[in-house]
């Protein structure tokens, strides 16, 4: 396995330490050479005596995951189901949340954690449906956070009274990479994909598409104007996530939204 080093001169390279002692003197970096035994400690930092190795074997996400577990415990104690909604920017998360709130108004008590505010209008779009809304400041007008993590969601909970809620929907930052890596304490992850994005998205962002239990295929109202190949998209999705629930809908017209809402609240057969 390759291993990356930063040397005193600030350069980085990688080489294999599984083989026996070796030295290297690369074409790109003439004059650089050093030896490694299979198990030596290397001497990349400039001092040689009195070393000890401490085994740690700790997950780099353990801080985040402990916080996520605490969030989840708080949700469970209050009997609240939590769905973490992710997508690339502009796929239609906020529009879908608007529709969802309209459907659930007077039926279910909903809270929103809004972590993807590009303009103040985004937050206003969700008001007027009787939902509790907690805004997370993730942008500063020039970009900002690229994902929500568990401590951010914990902070957002201060603005929600979980004891008076049935469902919390989290709008994550528009990004198909890092949000997939961070457990925030949700019960289910879902993503919104829109048919303007190209059928190969699941193959380009497999970790995201694999992380979710449900994929909303949004903007279906545009299908007559595009040459979107739904069968190809579904096959690509199946290669990375064969068990995902798929909801084809239009958040704009509302067509197909009911099945999504049933899944989101946890009453559909597919969870």
């Amino acid at each position: 396995m390759g291993r990356f080093h930063r040397h005193d001169d600030g350069t980085v390279h990688s080489h294999d330490h599984d083989e026996s002692s070796h030295s290297h003197d690369t074409e790109e970096r003439p004059g650089h050479s050093h030896d490694h035994g299979p198990d030596d400690l290397g001497d990349h930092s400039g001092y040689a005596t009195g070393r000890a190795r401490i085994e740690i074997l700790e997950d780099i996400f353990s801080e985040n995951d402990r916080c996520a577990a605490a969030n989840r415990a708080a949700f469970d104690a209050a009997g609240v189901r939590v769905v973490n909604l992710m997508s690339s920017p502009g796929s239609g998360k906020t529009t879908l949340l608007q529709r969802t709130l309209a459907e659930l108004q007077d039926r279910l008590r909903v809270g929103i954690i809004e972590g993807d505010i590009e303009t103040p209008i985004d937050a206003e779009r969700l008001s007027g449906y009787g939902a509790q809304i907690s805004l997370l400041n993730t942008g500063n007008g020039f970009g900002g956070e690229c994902h929500l993590d568990a401590p951010m969601v914990a902070r957002a909970l201060a603005a929600l009274d979980l004891s008076t809620l049935d469902l919390v929907l989290i709008e994550n930052v528009g990004n198909l990479v890092c949000p997939a890596e961070f457990d925030v304490g949700e019960h289910r992850k879902a993503m919104v994909y829109s048919i303007t994005e190209g059928e190969d998205k699941p193959l380009k962002y497999p970790v995201m598409f694999r992380s979710v239990a449900a994929v909303v295929v949004n903007k279906m109202d545009l299908a007559p104007y595009l040459d979107f190949d739904l069968g190809l998209f579904r096959r690509n999705l199946a290669t990375v996530n064969p068990s995902a629930e798929v909801f084809e809908l239009s958040a704009r017209t509302g067509e197909g939204v009911a099945a999504w809402v049933a899944w989101a609240v946890g009453t559909s057969p597919g969870r």
């Binding site: 009195g50 000890a52 401490i54 740690i56 997950d59």
Partner: peptide, 12 residues
């Protein structure tokens, strides 16, 4: 995998 495996430290 996403692990901190070990660290090497000065003895004292």
């Amino acid at each position: 995998e996403m692990l901190i495996v070990s660290i090497d430290v000065a003895e004292a």
